[in-house]
Computed example of a mutant assay.
Amino acid sequence: MPRTRDVEKQKRALTEATWAVLTRAGLTGLTASAVAKEAGCTTGLVFHTFPTKRDLLVHARRTLTERAVARLEEVEAKASDPLSALQDVVRALPVYRRGATDEARVWVSFLAAAVADEDIAEHHRQGNRMLLRRIERLAAAARPDWTHEDVTSFAVDVSALSEGLNAVSLLDTQSYSAEQQERSIDRLLERTT
Rank of each mutant, 00 (worst) to 15 (best):
L83R: 10
L83M: 00
L83F: 01
S84G: 02
S84N: 02
A85E: 01
A85N: 02
A85R: 03
A85Q: 03
L86I: 01
Q87A: 02
Q87H: 02
Q87S: 00
D88R: 00
D88W: 00
V89Q: 01
V89L: 03
V90W: 00
V90N: 00
V90S: 00
R91S: 01
R91H: 05
A92Q: 03
A92V: 02
L93C: 06
L93F: 01
P94R: 00
V95F: 14
Y96V: 08
Y96M: 04
Y96N: 08
R97Y: 06
R97W: 05
R97N: 12
R97H: 06
G99S: 11
G99Q: 08
A100C: 12
A100Y: 13
T101S: 15
E103F: 13
E103W: 15
E103L: 07
E103T: 14
E103A: 12
A104C: 09
A104M: 06
A104S: 15
A104E: 13
R105I: 12
W107P: 07
W107G: 14
W107F: 13
V108A: 15
V108Y: 15
V108G: 12
V108I: 15
S109Q: 07
F110T: 07
F110L: 12
L111C: 13
L111N: 14
L111G: 15
A113V: 07
A113D: 11
A113E: 14
A114K: 04
A114P: 14
V115P: 11
V115R: 14
V115G: 11
D117I: 06
D117Y: 12
D117K: 04
E118Y: 09
E118H: 14
D119K: 14
I120R: 12
A121Q: 14
E122W: 08
H123D: 08
H123M: 07
H123S: 11
H123F: 09
H123G: 04
H124S: 08
H124I: 02
H124G: 08
H124E: 07
R125E: 05
Q126F: 13
Q126P: 10
Q126K: 13
G127D: 04
N128H: 10
N128Q: 10
R129T: 03
R129F: 10
M130H: 11
M130N: 07
L131N: 01
L131Q: 02
L132T: 09
R133P: 02
R133T: 04
R134W: 10
I135S: 04
I135P: 08
E136T: 05
R137T: 02
R137L: 02
A139N: 09
A139W: 07
A140Q: 10
A140L: 06
A140C: 07
A141W: 01
A141S: 06
R143P: 03
R143N: 11
R143D: 05
R143M: 04
D145S: 10
D145Y: 00
D145W: 01
W146P: 04
W146N: 04
T147I: 02
T147P: 06
T147C: 06
H148A: 14
H148C: 10
E149R: 06
E149Y: 07
D150C: 03
D150R: 03
